[in-house]
Amino acid sequence: MAQRIDVHHHVVPPAYRERLLRSGTDAGGRDVPDWSPQASLDLMGRNDIGTAILSVTTPGVEPWLGGDARAMARSVNEYCAELAAEHPGRFGFWATLTLPDVDGALAEAAYALDELHADGVVLLANSAGTYLGDPSFEPLMDELGRRGAVVFVHPSALPAEPVPGIPPFAADFLLDTTRAAANLAANGTLHRHPDLKIILSHAGGFLPYAAERIAACLEMAGDERGTADLLTDLRRFYFDTALSASPYSLPGLTAFADPERILFGSDFPYAPAEIATIMTGRLDTAPELDHPAINRTNATRLLPHLA
């Protein structure tokens, strides 16, 4: 049986982890987990994952500005490229960029995609409070669109104070992803760059559930394209299944999303091995899904070299 391709699988390079711990920075309220390449390989073996596409989660390199952020992004990307070379076929990676530093992001995208052969890039839904789709990010989106790049969108903490007792990763992450998706549609980024391939984490937040309302409200707010065209744009996203394989989430996702745009994701190690494995089992037993497509075939359409 063909093995899964995991498009939502995190990496915590040692130098990056040390810097996060030294600065007291967490991942949206989630402590930085212990991680090693072997821990990922063990999780992959346990869940029949052939290839994991690695990415750094929030906060990315946002806590460090200017040259420090650029240097850390370069360090992370070179670490991931070395790991992929050491384990041929087992690891790929989404390159870390430097938003809101657009010039740095353009330079690092070129290096990571052309020299390190990254599978695509990872962008946070918002960077220092500026959401994907904002005109200030257009030079980067234009370049990624020109390349037909794959963009993996991961949520971050909202640019607002969290609710006491509810860490951002519990609920705010879902709104953050949905805000980014709506902004990308409302500002025409998807329309202008039809070759962009954008994956939304965690089944798109609550986008599938609320897409009709979001599109209709954008029309009411003055978007000239109207609800039907906005929904067409929103359906252009890809969606991963990380932490979303429940009998409540999957029916909404499959009712909304193009079945060729649903991809397997584990969210390891921020989702501990036990939880990632439980979610994988629930996905495997969910009825009326094209399991081979979600587990592998849809990803190989995005990343043909993995076929």
Rank of each mutant, 00 (worst) to 15 (best):
H9K: 13
H9M: 12
H10D: 14
V11I: 15
V11Q: 05
V12K: 05
P14K: 13
P14M: 09
Y16A: 06
P37F: 05
L43S: 11
M44Q: 13
N47M: 14
N47V: 12
I49G: 01
I49V: 15
G50V: 07
S55N: 04
T57L: 10
T58N: 03
P59T: 05
P59E: 08
E62S: 09
G67R: 11
A71G: 11
M72E: 12
A73I: 09
A73Y: 09
V76G: 08
V76Y: 01
Y79F: 15
A81S: 14
L83G: 00
L83H: 00
E86A: 15
R90T: 03
T96G: 09
P100H: 03
A105D: 00
A105W: 04
Y111D: 14
H117R: 14
D119H: 13
L123R: 00
L124Q: 14
L124Y: 12
N126Q: 08
G129Q: 06
P135Y: 12
F137P: 07
D142N: 13
E143I: 02
G145F: 07
R146I: 13
R147S: 13
A149S: 14
V153H: 05
S156D: 06
A157L: 05
L158S: 03
P159R: 08
P164L: 02
P164G: 01
G165M: 04
G165N: 02
F169R: 08
A170V: 15
D176R: 04
T178V: 04
A185Q: 09
N187D: 06
H191I: 12
D195K: 15
K197S: 05
H202Y: 11
H202V: 05
A203S: 15
I214S: 09
A216H: 12
L218E: 12
R225G: 13
D229G: 10
D229A: 15
T232P: 00
R235E: 00
F237N: 05
D240Y: 03
A242P: 00
L243M: 12
A245G: 02
S249G: 08
A257F: 10
L263P: 07
F264N: 13
A273W: 09
I275G: 00
I275E: 05
A276I: 08
T277L: 11
T277Y: 06
T285K: 14
P287M: 03
L302Q: 08
L303A: 06
H305F: 12
L306H: 03
